[in-house]
Computed example of a mutant assay.
Amino acid sequence: MEAKRLNKFISDTGFCSRREADNLLEQGRVTVNGKVPDAGTKVTAQDKVRIDGEMLRIRHEEPVFLLFNKPAGIATTTDLSVRNNIIQALNYPASLQPIGFLDRDAEGLLLLSNDTEWARKMTKADTRYEKEYIVTVDKLISPDFLNKVSEGGIPEPGEERKKNFVNRLGTNRFRIVLEPGTNHHLKRVVEGLGYKIVHLQRTRLSDLTAGKLHVGMWRTLTGTEITSLKNEISQKARRNFGSSRVADDFTDEDFAPRTTRPAKPKTPAKPGTSTRSATPANRSAKSSPRSTGSTGQKRIGKSKPASARPASRNTSRRTGGSPKR
């Protein structure tokens, strides 16, 4: 293994994201070979990296790429101390990271992967692929409101913006297709126009739709779907609706930053034990061949309902389900 930056090493173990790893480093909770590391430290597999005294280990997992039809009430965070987080909901035996952001109260399609580099690039390129939503707001919608929503909010005087497709579905309900290079912060746009979102459903991500994937279900992406997404995010960033900001300037963290909660002191695991607990570090253990699924064929599984999810992580492994959609 080549030397890599410490925050990437921590992210690759599945403990947390790079941004959360940077916070841990600033808090002095990370040690390398028993010493607090300097900024920019690089490490290899031979170095002993610990967080709050607990050793991190490189994962040995096959790449996993999932499409999840998220129910409302599930938080898109890897922090296991957060109630009804997506990791416990899926209970998938791999160190997954959600790609992008979908509000706890929203439902719809969300990508997850244990390929941290791909997940980071997909999140950074969040505005480079189309997204489609069905939105319900708290009061009657007008043609002027729909026009401003299609433009991504109220434009500056003289500013020209690329319009998104908007279709009125009812007195307080509409469908919108967010085009590449436009403002994808839909909740912020709607609230900026004096409305509140009552219900938000994401029905499409690029060319991915739910199809027969009911709410609460997940499936693995096919090799063709993965290749298509990788090609899409490799395109050059587009200018954002006539302004000087480019698509990469808008990220989900910019809209709704996630914070890492202060961790309680952890008791080091006893030698020889191999138990799976609610601590993120234990997600780095080597998974069985059943844990990853295939990128060339689809597997389907179902998440646990929010009311049935325990406070700590379930130790049972899910095997997915029928290979049919």
Rank of each mutant, 00 (worst) to 15 (best):
M1S: 07
D12R: 06
D12F: 03
T13N: 02
G14C: 05
F15C: 09
S17C: 05
E20R: 12
G28K: 08
V30Q: 01
T31K: 13
D38K: 08
D38N: 06
D38H: 05
G40Y: 03
K42W: 00
A45T: 11
Q46W: 03
M55Q: 09
E62M: 15
P63R: 09
N69A: 03
K70D: 07
K70V: 03
A75Q: 12
T76I: 01
T78F: 04
T78I: 13
D79C: 04
S81H: 13
V82Q: 15
I87P: 08
N91K: 07
Y92W: 14
Q97A: 12
I99G: 01
L109H: 09
L112A: 03
T116Y: 02
E117Y: 04
A119Q: 09
T127V: 07
Y129K: 01
V135K: 01
T136W: 11
K139D: 09
K139I: 09
I141A: 10
S142Q: 09
D144R: 12
F145K: 10
V149W: 02
P155C: 06
E156S: 02
P157I: 05
K163Y: 00
V166C: 02
R173I: 15
R175Q: 15
V189K: 00
G192D: 09
G194E: 06
Y195E: 01
Y195V: 04
H199N: 14
H199S: 15
L200T: 02
S206A: 15
A210H: 08
A210W: 02
G211F: 01
V215K: 06
G216W: 06
T224R: 13
E225Q: 10
I226K: 07
T227Q: 11
L229M: 14
Q235V: 08
A237L: 06
R239T: 10
R239M: 10
N240A: 09
R245H: 11
V246G: 02
A247M: 02
A247Q: 14
D249C: 00
E253V: 01
R258G: 13
K264T: 08
P265H: 04
K266C: 05
K270G: 11
S277G: 07
A278M: 10
T279D: 13
S284D: 04
S287C: 05
S288L: 06
S288T: 14
S288Q: 07
S294L: 10
S294M: 12
R299M: 15
S303L: 09
P305R: 08
A311D: 12
S312V: 08
N314R: 15
N314E: 10
G321V: 05
G321W: 04
P323G: 08
P323W: 04
P323N: 10
